[in-house]
C-alpha cells in the first residue's frame, strides 16, 4: 500500500493501508534519529514553512527538527510575528508563501478546516499540524506508532481516552486512527466535555470511571484546559481531578499510559504515573520526530 496524497489533512480520510504505510516508513526514520549523526539528504533543496497561528512548542519543534534531519530548509512563522496579526488573510499568507516556492506548508491554526481550505488553494503540500477541534493527524500517527511499538498490534487493543473530548483534535484523530486499525475505544468524560453524537463514530462512552477503565490495555489521558471551568463546562478543577484524575489505583496493573502533553500534573494525571515506568509520554515525543519525517518523506515522494 502506497501513499499518494498531496496533503495530510486528517486521519478520517485515510485508509488503514495508508496509515500502515506511514507507520512502516516511520520505523526507518526512527532508526536514523537514534544514530549519532542524524542528518540524511532526503529533502535537500526542499523548503518547509511552519505556519503556526496558535501557540505550540512541541509540535513546532518536532516538525522543525524533522525537516532539518531530512536536510530541508525550514522557516518558522508564528501568529504574533507575521502579517497575519496585521489582518492579512490566511489565503494571502499562503499564496505569498507558495509564490516563494515553499514545498511544504505545515499549518497550526485555531480554525477547524483551515488546512483543507489552504490545500485547495495552493500547490504546496499542506500538513495539518492541528486545526481547532478538528484533527491533529501527526499526533495520532505518532500515538499509533508508539502503541504499535509497545503492543506489537493495535487490533483488538482496548483503549480508553479520558478527558476533554469536545475540544480535542487529538481525541478525534486518535479515535479515527484507532478504529481504522481495529482497536476498541471507550471515551470517558463528563457529558459537558463530550461532543454530541460522538458514539456514532463507533466508540463506547462512559461518564464516570468504571470497569471499562480497568479493562483498558492503554489509557490515553487528555489535557484539561483550565479555561473550561469559566465556560460553565465544569464546576472546578478539584472536582475534575477527583472524578477523572488518573492514578495507578484506577487503572489495570498492566495498563500503559499516554498523554499528548503538556501535562497538568495533579489534575488529569498524577506525577508518579506520568513519568513512571508505565508511561509512554517520552516515547511519544521521540516517535513524533520519526513519524513527521515519514510524513514529509512520503508527501514529497508523490511529486
Amino acid at each position: 500500500m502506497s501513499f499518494t496524497r498531496k496533503d495530510l489533512l486528517g486521519i478520517e480520510e485515510l485508509s488503514a493501508g495508508e496509515i500502515q504505510s506511514l507507520l512502516v516508513a516511520a520505523v526507518s526514520f526512527k532508526e536514523i534519529i537514534e544514530r549519532n549523526v542524524k542528518k540524511v539528504p532526503t529533502l535537500r533543496g526542499k523548503t518547509i514553512i511552519n505556519l503556526f497561528l496558535e501557540p505550540s512548542t512541541r509540535t513546532r519543534i518536532s516538525f522543525e527538527l524533522a525537516g532539518k534531519y531530512l536536510s530541508a530548509d525550514v522557516i518558522n512563522i508564528s501568529a504574533g510575528g507575521s502579517s497575519v496579526s496585521k489582518g492579512e488573510s490566511l489565503l494571502d499568507t499562503a499564496k505569498t508563501l507558495e509564490a516563494m516556492k515553499a514545498d511544504y506548508l505545515v499549518v497550526r491554526t485555531p480554525f477547524a478546516g483551515a488546512p483543507l481550505y489552504l490545500a485547495k488553494m495552493v500547490k504546496s503540500a499542506v500538513i495539518n499540524a492541528g486545526d481547532g477541534a478538528h484533527e491533529h493527524p501527526t499526533q495520532a500517527l505518532l500515538d499509533l506508532f508508539t502503541i504499535q511499538e509497545k503492543f506489537q498490534q493495535i487490533r483488538s487493543l482496548k483503549v480508553a481516552i479520558i478527558g476533554d473530548i469536545s475540544h480535542s483534535r487529538v481525541a478525534r484523530s486518535n479515535i479515527w486512527g484507532l478504529l481504522k486499525l481495529g482497536a476498541e475505544v471507550t471515551l470517558i468524560a463528563p457529558p459537558t466535555l463530550l461532543p454530541i453524537d460522538i458514539e456514532k463514530m463507533g466508540v463506547k462512552v462512559r461518564f464516570k470511571i468504571d470497569d471499562e477503565l480497568k479493562k483498558a490495555d492503554l489509557v490515553y489521558v487528555l489535557r484539561l484546559q483550565r479555561e473550561r471551568q469559566r465556560g460553565g463546562l465544569l464546576p472546578g478543577l478539584r472536582e475534575y481531578a477527583r472524578l477523572y484524575g488518573i492514578n495507578s489505583s484506577r487503572i489495570s496493573k498492566k495498563a500503559m499510559v499516554m498523554h499528548p502533553g503538556p501535562l497538568n500534573q495533579g489534575i488529569e494525571i498524577d506525577d508518579e504515573l506520568a513519568y513512571g515506568p508505565r508511561s509512554l509520554v517520552t516515547d511519544q515525543v521521540t516517535n513524533g520526530l520519526a513519524v513527521r519525517m515519514a510524513v514529509l518523506y512520503l508527501l514529497v515522494g508523490k511529486k
Binding site: D131, A133, H134, R172
Partner: peptide
C-alpha cells in the same frame, strides 16, 4: 449541532 459538527470540530 449534530454528528457532523462533532466530526468537523466546529
Amino acid at each position: 449541532e449534530g454528528f457532523v459538527s462533532t466530526k468537523l470540530g466546529l
